[in-house]
Amino acid sequence: MANNTVKAAPKKNSQAKEVWRRFKKNKLAVAGLVIIFILIIAAILAPVIAPYGYDDQDYSATLIRFSKEHLLGTDNLGRDILSRLLYGSRVSLTIGFISVGIGLVIGGLVGAISGYYGGVLDDILMRIVDIIMAIPSIILAISICAALGPGLINTMIAVGISSIPNYARILRSSILSIKQQEFVEAATAIGASDARIIAKHIIPNSLSGLIVQASMGVGRAIISAASMSFVGLGIQPPNPEWGAMLSFGRTYFRDYGYMVLYPGLFIFIAVLSMNLIGDGLRDALDPRLKR
């Protein structure tokens, strides 16, 4: 996350360093970052570190709570839950990051255009955003998913679209305030193109709000996807998305609570880490903050 800031705003290298310095001081945020890194590495290395494949069924070893071979037990098909969770971090993190990416790109574009140009365009775009915002995001996501059909990509699209208004509004309002500042006026005065001004001046300067929102958005996206799996939309089996595992385990939760507990904990830890990072970034990006 912090590294991205460096790349996105090369001119502000020293400021990025400063942000990173402040971020580092926040031990919780660093812990969150470490956990997310571990999860990402687990996701990448899942085939290497997972003791079993995610769909290795063993009907002679079903519903084991704990054993040396299966540290987190097995599900009703005798699949190793730990392995599924590790593979699941691929699916869940992908959904989290990509859907935020979709929301960020589209929402950011809408917000940037709307905020920069203003006028009728702004009115139209913001009315559309108002319409999307009037539908609670989970209902929107579920309706989109019902329309597109289930599956990984459709889930990401559904979650991504429903988060567009968030990003659009944040970027728009920060652009509106930046637009008034002298360096933008100066760039306009020397005849810089609109695209250049947006890309070089406006976006880097309004990034901080967006970054914080995005890092927390990853957590929210993971929960949204899990919620959709919970009502039976979303990821298709045997794909081990955490929410789908949780949803499936719910039939067994009276006697085999661990089938619900572990996926829930993984979702929780991932989302918590993203929120910690978000909190930390917000504090670090806002130098005037309480200290």
Binding site: D55, Q57, N76, L77, G232, P237, P238, F248, T251
Partner: peptide, 15 residues
């Protein structure tokens, strides 16, 4: 269709 048993059966046949 949605359903625990039928879903499990489908996963097993798939496997």
């Amino acid at each position: 269709a949605k359903g625990n048993e039928v879903g499990t059966a489908a996963e097993m046949i798939c496997n």
